[in-house]
């Protein structure tokens, strides 16, 4: 159907908590679906983002695959939105930034008790890790930031309806949350 905006969402180094909060818009998803159609998203299982109007990115960038997906979103989406603490600052995964990656992998897969101790996984299918977890805006231009851990469902709603109405999104103070 024409006139619908195409929306893609994904989680990079995130926990899908932002997606879960997004779904907390509850039954409002029905009127939303009258105005948007989902492209790549955990809700659709589409594997690659195509040409979209809006892309929501949850999570920071911790490995090569994250970067690949992020670049695909940036190339495909007219408006790219960094959603939640991890996309905006690196968030929880960035707690590893103070450690050396190699030492960390060794601790987890070799030294610590209770794990298989088969050594650090080295399958060629595994994406390479970055030295540090970085927020998405350090890799690509980001158009909007939707803060929160996670952003409240009402923040998603206010943000998307503003975009759909062609208004500049501006969240009221009570929806700007950083926790």
């Amino acid at each position: 159907m024409t006139g619908k905006l195409r929306l893609a969402t994904t989680s990079l180094a995130g926990c899908f908590g932002c997606h879960t909060s997004f779904l907390d818009i509850d039954e409002r998803i029905i009127p939303l679906l009258e105005r948007v159609s989902f492209d790549r998203s955990p809700l659709t299982d589409v594997k690659h983002a195509g040409a979209c109007d809006v892309g929501l990115i949850e999570g920071g960038v911790c490995n090569e695959e994250n970067l690949h997906v992020l670049r695909e979103f940036r190339a495909g989406c007219r408006t790219l939105v960094a959603v939640g603490a991890c996309a905006i600052t690196g968030g929880l995964p960035a707690q590893r930034n103070r450690f050396d990656v190699g030492a960390l992998l060794h601790d987890v897969y070799v030294a610590e008790p209770g794990l298989t101790r088969r050594g650090v996984p080295d399958d060629v299918e595994l994406p390479r890790l970055f030295d540090r977890v970085r927020p998405v805006h350090e890799f690509v231009k980001v158009d909007y930031f939707l803060p929160g851990c996670p952003p409240p469902a009402d923040a998603f709603w206010a943000f998307l309806t503003a975009l759909l109405d062609g208004r500049e999104p501006a969240l009221p103070k009570e929806l700007l949350r950083y926790d």
């Binding site: 490995n63 090569e64 190699g102 992998l105 996984p121 399958d123 390479r128 970055f130 030295d131 970085r134």
Partner: peptide, 9 residues
């Protein structure tokens, strides 16, 4: 930055 992360760990 990827190299510094160690190739495939």
């Amino acid at each position: 930055a990827l190299e510094a992360g160690g190739s495939r760990g």
